[in-house]
């Protein structure tokens, strides 16, 4: 799910870059030294995920995993996805250089929304909520990216409803695969290494990076 060069108009591309820089600057605030290795590993996972093709029927889909990045990195998902997209563009020719901004808004935004959905798990009390909300977050990442893709294609003159419907229909297999993958990963991590997952506390206040830092500090203290 990368938009290629030469489709979108200059204002849309510029808006993509401005939005990406702004959101990346905001989400990178107060990056802890301890967070860096985790962010770099997950960025690598995202970077390589697009090469993993899952055969479905006559066709195949490739993983995107922006939902997983959101679940594991929280707010840091955005800069991680940005770096992943830059490298995918340069090395694999996915998308295009002028579209890096829009593609990052599309997939990185999906990652942030996935994180939001993941955080909702604090408000319910059911069994296996990590697996369920991980799965939902995985599907959300793809779904919201599909909407952004359709929105940005509208600016080229394609009709929104048709494009959105078609895009989402085409991505249903990816959505299902990602929901399974992210749900399984979240459940596994919750059991084995719960502190590897983002957002140990619910998103009650807006200042979540500070909160996460406080969480990290608490964990540090408890060790």
């Amino acid at each position: 799910m990368h938009i290629s060069d030469g489709i979108l108009s200059a204002p849309v591309l510029t808006a993509g870059f401005i939005g990406t820089v702004a959101v990346a600057a905001y989400t990178l605030r107060k990056l802890d030294l301890d967070d860096i290795p985790k962010v770099s590993v997950i960025t690598s996972v995202f970077f390589v995920a697009s090469l993993i093709h899952v055969p479905i029927g006559f066709s195949s889909v490739h993983l995107i995993l922006n939902g997983l990045v959101g679940v594991v990195l929280g707010m840091r998902a955005f800069p991680a996805i940005m770096l992943g997209i830059i490298l995918q563009t340069i090395l694999f020719g996915h998308g295009g250089v002028t579209v890096i901004g829009v593609n990052t808004m599309m997939l990185g935004g999906g990652g942030l929304l996935a994180y939001g959905v993941w955080q909702l798990r604090h408000h319910v009390n059911i069994n296996k909520k990590e697996m369920i909300f991980g799965g939902l977050a995985g599907a959300t990442g793809i779904f919201s990216s599909g909407i952004v893709l359709a929105l940005s294609l509208v600016t080229t003159g394609e009709e929104f409803i048709a494009t959105a419907g078609y895009t989402l229909a085409a991505h249903i297999p990816v959505m299902i695969v990602e929901a399974l993958v992210v749900g399984a990963c979240a459940a596994f991590l919750a059991k084995v290494k719960p502190d590897a997952l983002a957002g140990q506390l619910p998103l009650t206040q807006k200042s979540s990076p500070v909160k996460e830092k406080a969480t990290a500090a608490n964990e540090e203290a408890s060790k």
Binding site: S50, S59, S60, H94, A162, H171, V174
Partner: peptide, 12 residues
């Protein structure tokens, strides 16, 4: 759009 097969996210 409807008759075009799903293109998924592969590079063209």
């Amino acid at each position: 759009l409807l008759i075009t097969p799903p293109a998924f996210a592969h590079k063209l």
